[in-house]
Design a protein around this nucleic acid. Structure first.
Lengths: 212, 212
DNA sequence: TTGGAACTACCTCTTTGGGGGTAGAGGGTG
DNA sequence: CACCCTCTACCCCCAAAGAGGTAGTTCCAA
C-alpha cells in the first residue's frame, strides 16, 4: 500500500471480457482501483453520479451511447474527473471530436498493457495522453478544421442516415417516416453536404463507423 | 495438478487486451493451458503448425484473415483440434458459415467468463457449444439454406466489393482496376445476386460486417 | 416582433446504378 | 476434345440518386 489512497477508476466497455482483462491488469497495480464497470454510456452516466471516479476509461464503439457522446454528456454535467477514450477507432473525426470535447487522452486498444498503465498514471497527474499512432491523424485533424462531424446533424438527418446505413432507398425511407421521397432526398442532400461526403454509400460507411 | 496433462489452447484475437483478459482468466484453471497467442488469422495458421494446440479460440473480426476464413484454411489443412469461434458477431451468415465449415462451437463475447470456461471444457470433451443467444439465428439459418455467403465470391468480385465499401463509384473502380465501368457493373450485378442483396449500399454494409 | 433553423414539398436537370441480354478470350478439368 | 468458369466488353432500358432551385409551416430565441 502507498501512503496515498489508490486512484478510483471506472471502466466502460460493452465487452465483459475486455473489462475483465482491464480489471485484472489494473488490479495488479496497488495505486489503481477499479470501483465500477459499465456496459454502455447510459450505465456509465448513472454510475458516475454515484461513484465519482477519478478517471474513466471509455470505449467508443458501444450501443446506446458511444464514447464521444458519453464524453459530451459528462462534460455537460461538469464531471470533474479525467476521461480517457480507449478504443480501436483511429478515425480522424472521433479523435477530433474527443479532443474538442475535452478528453484527457485517446488511447488505442492495440497498445501494450504495460504502456496503458503508464499512460493512465500520467493522465491522473494531469497529462494529456495520446497513442503515438495518432500523431498523423491529429495533424490531419488540425489541417481540416472545418469538418462538421456528426454532432452537427439534425435529428431528422441522423435518422435518415441510419436508414441509409441499413440499406434503405429514399423511397423506402420516405414511407417509413411518413414523408415524401423528395423530402428524403433533401435530407440526404443536406447530410451529405454537412459530412463532406459524395454518395449515400460513403454515408452508410461513415454511419457504421461513427454512429452507435 | 491433475493426473492428466492440461489441455493446450491457442488464442487468436487482434486485441492484446482481450487476449490478456482471456489468458488471465484461463490460467486460473489448471486443466487449461494457453500455449500461444496470435494477432490475426495468418499468424494463427503459422502457430498452429508449430504448437499443435488442442483447441483454438478464434475471434472473427480480424484484419488480413477473419475467423471464418481462418477456420476454412485450418480445415483444409486437416487441423485435428477443436476450433471455437469467439466473437461479437451474431450475424446469421457468419454463424452458418462457421457451422458449415465444421466449427466446434460459436460463442459470443458478451457471455460471462465463468460460462466460457465451462463451454471450453465441454468442447474439449467433444461437445458442440453454442451461445444460447444464437438459437434464433440458427433456426433462421436453417430456414434460409440458399444463401451463398462470401465464400462463393470470385477474387474480382471480392475486390470490387471492397471498393464499393470504400465508397467508390463504378467509374472510379473501373479506373483503378483498369477495366471499363461496364465491366464493373457486371461484377456488381453478379456479386449482388450471389449475396442476395439489392443495392450497392447493402453490399457496402454487408462488406463492412463480413469482410476483414 | 423579427430572424433563423428545421422540416416539409415541389420543380428541373444530369449522372449513376442495376437488370437483362450477347459474346469473345483464357484457364482448367473431366 | 468439349465443357465450365472467370473476366472482359458491349448493348438497351428504366429506376434511383444527387445537385440546384423556390417556398410554406412551425417553433424557438434574440
Amino acid at each position: 500500500m502507498n501512503t496515498t489512497a489508490a486512484h478510483t477508476l471506472l471502466l466502460v466497455d460493452d465487452h465483459p471480457m475486455m473489462r475483465r482483462g482491464l480489471r485484472q491488469l489494473l488490479e495488479l497495480e496497488n495505486d489503481l482501483q477499479v470501483i465500477g464497470e459499465a456496459n454502455n454510456g447510459i450505465e456509465a452516466l448513472e454510475m458516475v453520479r454515484e461513484l465519482r471516479p477519478e478517471l474513466i476509461l471509455l470505449d467508443n464503439n458501444m450501443p446506446e451511447l458511444n464514447g464521444v457522446q458519453t464524453l459530451k454528456r459528462l462534460r455537460e454535467q461538469n464531471f470533474p474527473g479525467k476521461v480517457l477514450l480507449f478504443t480501436v477507432s483511429d478515425d480522424e473525426d472521433d479523435v477530433r471530436d474527443a479532443m474538442r470535447l475535452g478528453a484527457d487522452g485517446y488511447l488505442l486498444k492495440d497498445m501494450e498493457p504495460e504502456i496503458l498503465i503508464q499512460q493512465i498514471r500520467l493522465a491522473l497527474q494531469g497529462a494529456l495522453v495520446i497513442s503515438p499512432a495518432l500523431t498523423r491523424v491529429l495533424a490531419q485533424a488540425l489541417r481540416n478544421p472545418p469538418s462538421a462531424s456528426q454532432l452537427d446533424l439534425t435529428d431528422r438527418e441522423r435518422q435518415v442516415l441510419k436508414m441509409i446505413a441499413a440499406g434503405s432507398s429514399n423511397k423506402v425511407i420516405g414511407n417509413k417516416l411518413g414523408i415524401t421521397e423528395g423530402t428524403v432526398k433533401v435530407h440526404v442532400k443536406n447530410l451529405l453536404h454537412k459530412l463532406g461526403l459524395r454518395s449515400r454509400v460513403e454515408a452508410a460507411v461513415w454511419a457504421l463507423e461513427h454512429l452507435r
